[in-house]
Computed example of a mutant assay.
Amino acid sequence: MRPAAIVFDLDGTLIDSAPDVRAALNRLLAEEGRPKLTLAAVQDMVGEGAGPLMERAWAATGAPADRGAVPALVERYLAHYRAHPADETVVFDGVRTLLPRLRQAGCRLGVCTNKPHAMTLVVLAALGLAEHFDAVLGGDFPRRKPDGEHVRETLRRMGADGLPALYVGDSRTDVLAARDAGMPVVCVDWGYARMPAAELGADRLLGHFDHLPALIEELLA
């Protein structure tokens, strides 16, 4: 496999973080006297950053959140999340063998996620994944996904100039960001998308990370 730049989404793509997101969110909801959310409900809410997550959680459990209150809610949620960043989070099968394999092939690797940047670094470190990536860019970036500039800036920070690039994600947001960045996109078929993976509009679907090197060769030939 020739060297390439591979940009990954995080939640729902590389890791199943929804259980820990749900636990932190439910602690916050309990403090506010609101009902707990199910895991399935939280999976449908993630993907566009912590602010939209708060808004969706509040809308699902009672009166909508006042927009002016959302930043403070985000900070309280993140405090709960930082205390338990990876108690129940699982790295998807194949990731731990794939990442060093790609690095050995000369690939540059990055994470482009709408998850808050500092929280992303905490989670990657807790899971022992941080060392594999040349750059990580979270959702604090002012032009976040689905804006392709989020992906392009990740590539710049990866030092990926001149390398063919591929995006790997799990949602329509990821597909739109990759298209806007002018690069092919692969979607996993196990993520948090709110529609069937086949309807996301990706160039290829991925059923296991063992198959990603072959797709890289095919799409970046």
Rank of each mutant, 00 (worst) to 15 (best):
D20K: 05
I6W: 01
V95Q: 09
A160Y: 05
G182F: 01
S171A: 14
A41C: 08
T154S: 10
T61A: 10
P142G: 12
P64A: 10
V185P: 03
Y77S: 03
Q43Y: 08
K36E: 15
H150C: 12
D87H: 13
G201E: 10
M1D: 11
Y81M: 03
A59S: 14
C112D: 09
G94Q: 07
P100R: 11
G169T: 07
C107P: 03
L102N: 02
L176T: 13
R156C: 09
D20Y: 00
I6M: 07
L37D: 00
E88C: 11
A202D: 05
L137E: 01
E153F: 06
A130M: 12
I216L: 14
V42C: 02
R108W: 02
G110C: 09
F133I: 12
P52H: 06
S17M: 07
V111C: 09
L29F: 08
L176S: 13
L166E: 01
G12F: 03
G51Q: 12
P116L: 08
P64T: 10
A181E: 01
S17A: 15
R56Q: 07
A41F: 03
H132I: 06
A177Q: 02
T89G: 02
R204N: 10
H132F: 14
V188P: 04
P116T: 07
G110D: 00
P196A: 13
R204I: 06
A30Y: 09
P64Q: 07
P35A: 13
R34T: 13
A126L: 06
L121S: 10
A23L: 13
E131Q: 15
P164C: 06
T113N: 09
F8W: 07
A135I: 08
L14P: 06
H80A: 11
R157D: 07
R56W: 05
L137H: 02
A135P: 07
M195H: 12
L10N: 00
V122H: 07
G62C: 12
V186A: 07
A18G: 01
R156L: 14
H84C: 12
A221C: 14
G162N: 08
H211P: 03
E31V: 05
M45D: 01
V151Y: 00
L109V: 11
V111L: 04
G51W: 05
I6K: 04
C107A: 15
A24K: 01
D87F: 06
L14I: 12
R179K: 15
V95E: 06
R34I: 10
D174M: 11
F8C: 08
A18D: 01
G128F: 05
F133Y: 11
A177K: 00
V42L: 07
V21A: 06
V21N: 00
A86G: 05
V90D: 11
A72Q: 14
R96H: 13
I216R: 00
L215H: 10
